[in-house]
Design a protein around this nucleic acid. Structure first.
Length: 464
RNA sequence: GGCCGGGUGGCCGAGUGGCUUAGGCAAGGGCCUGCAAAGCCCUGUACGCGGGUUCGAUUCCCGCCCCGGCCUCCA
């Protein structure tokens, strides 16, 4: 049984699927206007961990993750016809078509996910391809009296029409700072209440990415896409909805209002949010220039899955402080584990150690990944038979996703040209105790990218 | 002003009403080695401040200080 901390209730909740044997999950996906940074990926990893744990409990997981390729504005203070969409801004900057930008960064997102060992979702609906769904939803909300058309043709959701607004973020409408962002001009244009938000925005003359609608040519608001696509693909009962902690308000609050008002009931059963990642003690954000991408990690010579292992060292609902030292440490552990697993695999097979169950228990207990790692470290050091250690790690890796069995039965790397001669010469020098020559040859080999070490049974080499 | 997380040894980070008080990284010592690398072994008693509850508090309660996040851009 998987248990998770539910943001709405604030409590640890047992995850009991609405349909026995099936778990329906909706994950807030990326806005595809730039490369995902490692903080984004940590949040996506959260969903992957839930999926893997649920699968281990025999549940068939249906996961939908949206791709936001329209409607996400840079700054909602400019909620007018010229409101700057993140994608359009990036398209202008790169001198590309906005849809080219969207597809380019969407592909990059999928590549990054794969590098981090995140299993693909069952569906990746795009906002730009779900406009009809959104229009139907908006029309329904207008009809039910939850939405209204402002003076400028923009359709707004009336926040006050949804009694439990604020249940996820624990904000109260009466306590929200009126006009913190929304300005007077916006209210003057026909928005009735400062906390109301746009469902459909009327477009200006020259704007790209617009669609016809009963309320004029325009484009959807950011929040409505998730309501439309989740209702369409998962229906009106969703077991778990995930996302980053910053989405709790306003995005998820607004999404919940739209979805529940349409369905006439509480649609999402559990909201689960991942905390933010700091890097070297500072918030990771473009504005602070403190952004690290998967490609940066690879460029420094680290396995991208070292990043995944580093993430597993902290619980998802804990703000984590990542650093290069942390990644380096994780890389080292990962390398050691893979080598150990490959060596253990050579030994006679044996049943998993009894402690293996503790790994799944830890994952099931609100994704207590630090404890799971601790169990594995202690199994690693224990006196269990190698075959049992192999079985345990191979099985646990279905949860960890670290590709630990990668080096099992792996053919040795090919030596660079000339390296074998140097190795032979060095072996000869060592038999003759000519250590000066031996050391010189070791340096030469290092120059070819071959690291040599001497063990009880002779030279061993690895490619660097 | 409202809401939400935190403050643990040099660093990162789990966790707990007492019990042998994680783990990692870095450090020091040792084994091994011609040297090195790797590996292995050993060492290092910490919980922001002040009260309270308690036989006993880092853990629970109250107050305070400090840090981070959200309050219509964000994973």
């Amino acid at each position: 049984m998987l248990r998770l901390t539910d943001t709405r209730t604030g409590a640890l909740e047992a995850i009991v699927p609405s349909t026995p044997g099936r778990l329906k999950v909706y994950a807030c996906g990326p806005t595809v206007y730039r490369y995902a940074h490692v903080g984004n990926l940590r949040t996506f990893l959260l969903t992957d961990l839930i999926r893997r744990t649920a699968s281990m409990h025999g549940l068939q997981v249906q996961l939908v993750q949206n791709i936001t390729d329209v409607g996400h504005l840079q700054d909602d203070t400019n909620l007018d016809a010229d409101g700057e969409d993140k994608l359009l801004a990036q398209a202008r900057e790169e001198g590309k078509d906005p849809f080219w930008i969207a597809r380019h960064y969407e592909e990059a997102f999928h590549r990054d996910q794969a590098l981090l060992g995140v299993h693909p979702a069952d569906a990746y609906p795009r906002a730009s391809e779900s406009i009809d769904l959104m229009l139907r939803l908006i029309a329904d909300l207008v009809e039910k009296g939850h939405a209204y058309v402002g003076g400028d043709g923009t359709v707004y959701f009336a926040a006050e029409s949804f009694a439990s607004y604020g249940a996820i973020s624990h904000n109260k409408l009466s306590e929200l700072r009126a006009g913190h962002r929304a300005d007077a001009t916006e209210l003057a244009k026909g928005k009735r209440f400062h906390a109301d938000w746009a469902l459909w925005k009327r477009a200006g003359e020259n704007r790209e990415m617009t669609w016809p609608s009963p309320w004029g040519h325009g484009f959807p608001g950011w929040h409505i896409e998730c309501s439309a696509m989740s209702l369409d693909l998962l229906g009106d009962v969703i077991d778990i909805h995930t996302g980053g902690i910053d989405l709790r308000f306003p995005h998820h609050e607004d999404e919940r209002a739209q979805t529940d008002c349409y369905a006439g009931k509480e649609v999402v059963r559990h909201w689960v949010h991942g905390e933010h990642l700091l890097f070297e003690g500072r918030k990771m954000a473009k504005s602070t220039g403190n952004v690290v991408l998967v490609s940066d990690v690879i460029d420094r010579g680290f396995d991208p899955l070292a990043l995944r292992l580093a993430f597993l060292g902290t619980r998802y609902r804990q703000q984590a402080n990542l650093s290069w030292a942390e990644i380096a440490g994780a890389h080292k552990t990962l390398t050691r584990w893979r080598a150990s697993v490959a060596a253990w695999a050579e030994q006679p097979s044996a049943a998993m150690v009894v402690e293996a169950a503790q790994v799944l228990d830890a994952f099931s207990d609100d994704l207590d990944t630090p404890r799971a790692l601790q169990v594995l470290r202690s199994v690693e050091k224990s006196g269990a038979p190698d075959g049992a250690k192999f079985e345990t790690f191979a099985w646990a890796d279905r949860l960890l996703g670290l590709d630990l069995a990668r080096d099992v039965g792996r053919a040795p790397d090919a030596l660079p040209a000339g390296a074998q001669d140097l190795l032979d010469a060095r072996a000869q020098a060592r038999t003759e105790k000519d250590f000066a020559l031996s050391d010189r040859l070791r340096d030469e080999l290092a120059g070819l990218g071959v690291a040599v070490k001497d063990t009880q049974v002779g030279q061993e080499w690895t490619l660097t």
